[in-house]
Design a protein around this nucleic acid. Structure first.
Lengths: 143, 143
DNA sequence: TTAATAAAAGACTTTTTTATCTTTTATTAA
DNA sequence: TTAATAAAAGATAAAAAAGTCTTTTATTAA
């Protein structure tokens, strides 16, 4: 469904969001432990997400990753689209290049419905929204 | 969503189902053309599907791939599960190993709904069902 | 029974994804 | 201003997925 990269990305951003709510920044090592991901791999991913405005960072002592209001309001859909592209939202279920209402693949209509549900769900969910559940220990980011 | 292998698998089986309805067998070359896939790759995939009972085949002149009643009634869900495993039906949206009702990831409940819709859709759809639309030129398998 | 046909099998290559390691740059506190 | 810290950047490696090529085996029609 989502690539490993995208799964790690969302988990890391949620971990950071949670820390931001605590009023603190967090470093690569803490993040990697907190979401159970390879350290260097998540570092790479976060560099990318930083460039794209999904997270902020500061080098040096007391540095680390954190969110501002704006980046906390980004939706999961935006993250997925940036990391994995929009194939999940618009691609054909059977991999056809030109699958459409007027030239549908055999599962076009049923599949479209599910794609749209997925997109809607991801669109209406922001990092900030989900960090609530984490903060209150109702949801988890590892294992 | 589905692997390339699985997309080709379903398309090839549908192509064969359609030919079966015509009362004829079909060969690798014709299949590869008919679904716009790499010839040797789909050959490999069909060998696999043959072992697993999703299609029948006969070597030699007048040979080729075809379906019987039973293989025509296999659901898309069965194919997906055999080719890609059941991660699509049971896996966590954020890649956690133990994501469950009692220890949910942040998107567990919303995601579960979508997974289940997907599974239901694929379960109630058989190769035979979809070959109708192809036969009547209402749906397509290439481009 | 033999030549032609078509799938089965297996080895191999390429591409993409995932992951790791090392060096550089920026920031801060002492 | 310097030593310590932490992210950024870049190079490399390993694993998985996708795709290709060659040889073998089974079947059939002549």
């Amino acid at each position: 469904m989502l690539s490993k990269t995208c799964e790690y990305a969302i988990r890391a951003l949620l971990f950071i969001a949670q820390k931001t709510k605590d009023g603190s920044k967090t470093g690569i090592k803490e993040i990697a432990k907190g979401i159970d991901s390879p350290e260097h791999f998540i570092a790479k991913i976060l560099q990318d997400l930083g460039r794209k405005g999904f997270v902020l960072s500061l080098k040096g002592p007391t540095g680390g990753f954190y969110h501002d209001k704006k980046s906390l309001n980004r939706s999961l859909a935006e993250i997925v689209k940036e990391v994995d592209g929009d194939k999940l939202f618009t691609g054909c279920g059977l991999g056809l290049k030109q699958c459409s209402e007027s030239r549908p693949c055999p599962i076009h209509h049923e599949f479209k419905k599910i794609r749209e549900d997925m997109q809607e769900m991801l669109q209406k969910t922001s990092l900030g929204d989900l960090s609530e559940g984490l903060f209150n220990r109702l949801t988890y980011l590892k294992r």
